[in-house]
Design a protein around this nucleic acid. Sequence first.
RNA 1: GCUCGGGUGGUGGAAUUGGUAGACACGCAAGACUUAAAAUCUUGUGACCUUAACAGUCGUGCGGGUUCAAUUCCCGCCCCGAGCACCA
Length: 842
Amino acid sequence: MVKYNHQSVEKKWQAYWENNQSFKADNFSEKPKFYALDMFPYPSGAGLHVGHPLGYTATDIICRKKRQQGYEVLHPMGWDAFGLPAENYAIKTGVHPSVSTHDNIKNFRRQIQSLGFSYDWNREVDTTNPQYFKWSQWIFLQLYKKGLAYEKSMDMNWCSKCKVVCANEEVERGRHERCGEMVSKKELKQWMFRITDYAERLLNDLDELPEWPDKIKVMQKHWIGKKTGINIDYFVEGIKEAITCFTTRPDTNFGATFLVLAPEQGFIKNHLNKFPNKEAVEMYIKESLAKSDIERMSEGRKKTGVFTGLYVLNRLNNKKIPLYVGDFVLANVGTGAVIGVPGHDLRDFEFAQIFAIEVERVVVSSDGDVSSIVRPEQVQEEEGKMINSEFLNGLEIMEAKERIMDYFEKKGWGKRVVNYKLRDWIFTRQRYWGEPIPLVHCEKCGVVPVPESELPLELPETPNYEPSETGESPLSKVTDWVNTTCPKCGAPAKRETSTMPNWAGSSWYWLRFMDPHNKKEFCSKKAEEFWGPVDLYVGGAEHAVLHLLYSRFWHKVFYDLGLVHTKEPFKKLVNQGLILSFAYENKDGVLIPIDEVEEKNGKFYHKEKKEEVFRIVAKMSKSLKNVVNPDEIVREYGADTLRMYEMFMGPFEQSKTWDSGAVAGMRKFLDRVWRFFQANKFDENTDKTLLPIIHKTIKIVSDHIDEFRFNTAISQLMVCFNELQKNSKMGQKEAESLVLLISPFAPHLAEEIWNKYLGHEETLVFANWPIYDESLLVENNVTYAIQINGKVRGDFQIDKETKKEVVIAHAKRIERVQKYLEAGEIVKEIFVPGKIVGFVVK
RNA sequence: GCUCGGGUGGUGGAAUUGGUAGACACGCAAGACUUAAAAUCUUGUGACCUUAACAGUCGUGCGGGUUCAAUUCCCGCCCCGAGCACCA
């Protein structure tokens, strides 16, 4: 017996694949195409995490199977390499980001290649390479020329730790998603993209993505946040300017008893002098604007506000209602002004309680309560019939809503509108390590795009990468770069010094992979028509509304420009689950690094303090020392073991916990497979009794790979080999089928067996994927379970063709069954073909 | 608070048109081989009760319901995870 030497075998086949260009994808193939894409990684200094190979292995399995099924497969890999870590490292050490990025890429490439993925490395891209970002800049100019980019000065999300502006999508619960720092507001001038122009299509086209997880579609839907309602104008006596309120519930408008403006609302600025309570209002606004987001959030739902002294007219019932300023009304939601209906909106009710504003009931819900509304539980927002609302009385709220909107529009008091939560994409950043924005500011001509012939516009060298507190890019200090001439008039001009966000490179990279060496176009029409759209896209769910929304937006712009032929970039999307690791905490919840913990009789103790600690599951982190390094697994057990273990851990989309013991178990299985092929000769005909299990395995493995159920595909392979250990009389054809079934999971081992024990000179990369014979799937005998009153009381085997009556009669003759049948009378007989015989006995 | 997922042995997980719950694996235990260990192979392994053996009772987060039959369907709760969050 020769032991399986994973180190030499894996090296050998990786070299073979590379020398033979086995995975090179052909843009002009006659075969049907299949394009599988992994979310390309940011090459961090920490190296590959075991979470990366999870997704990469899944796509690789699919790709290897597709190749064997006769597809031309595009499976590329690259680097999303612009980003803050490299830049922060540069600030600390003075090392140019391109140097550390290059080193990190080298390490990532080595690690990824050690796992034997079938990538076409000829197509590798790097977003920081000028030959790549030339086209990112070119795309920016296309959007600019189409009027989708504009410069605007407004309150931006500002991260004072990273010293950078963030997009709304990058703010999580008021914090910067990268670093966790609270985001503040800073008035800055930035370049924006009109993603809101595409809101409707980004929303509607989700319906054209049946192969996307519902979860992601729901999240995008919420993020876009489409709301239909009406803008109603209200007037203060003596002031011409209207206060416009957006509402989705105009049906309750007869119950309006106040109006609240956001502190930042323009009406206040314009007419503050006419406010009787001017001083109080000014003071309140000053206070609330000084509040940080932390303070606002910690106040929770507690409402504050101030009466302006003014009244507005509700023209529906000619009532004068008080005008307030309150910071629970957000300036950037709707119109920044809210009509208060305390009877049927909980927030309005809370506000009304504090200021002792009257509450009117205009809806009676199905509980029939018609009493005056004094408790929050009585605030009915969902359903009911109208009362106290004149011509609306008796109508259901949805009907009333339509009726009153017609009325408002007819009177000219309001206008139906659609509002979106989505806001325009803040695109520029004030940092060094990103694509320079290809624009020039000329005193005469204004903003002038850099001519396409001058792209790429490369980053200048600078001794100082430090960003500034005031939102100035480090590029602004490189004066000989900033000072240029206007491409239009030749006069002295200044370059735009902001850079693009790290989302830029990833918002179109799937197109570059189709045609990565094209010097004339970002991607040729022909290549795009052949490869597009991406058939399968695999990656983490953390990009649900960031990368995936931006990519869809750009792709739609490309579609409008005639650059791509599909509306959507990614046909099928699958999200992998997180890989977690064990960690320990003591009874006070203090986390303990794993190397300070020892196990005794199934319990865990702190080595020095001797106190008992408890095992928990946590994200892998340096401080807990529970990070698993893929290099070590590859060295000790081999790439095939790592690949198979990660696929076997559990359902692909679910979070899983790393278990080192189970890794060794997977290696044991591969050793068993190796020994099986080494120990047997395959020159006879296969034993007929083995055919059902082999064909069943072909079917299950094939189906489950397509369904991303890799764990059950592998368990079927195990079941099959367990069976074969009892009877191994097998011919060449069946032996080949089994090796091919394993090959997508453990390609190195499979190639070695294919070559060494099955006598093939050629690689199995293009061997035909096995096909099962339907007639061989079923065994001749089936097992019937006998149920009496629903409880299983025995079973028996019988020929699968046996008729119902015969099966039932057979069941009745079984001794153990008779015991139960004699206890009463059979009132019902149940027969499920091939499965169940049941009796109901009374 | 709202919106999506989930709760199955000591552990990871199988069982998705209602039909033998616990496949497959990890762990554990016993045995074979060995001077010994590792490796490998064999057997057992949900709980309870009982046994010479068969058998029996309970069991898929909790409480109800539908059904001959429920992890699966319905109603009402509890817990965990993710996302959104004063969105008018």
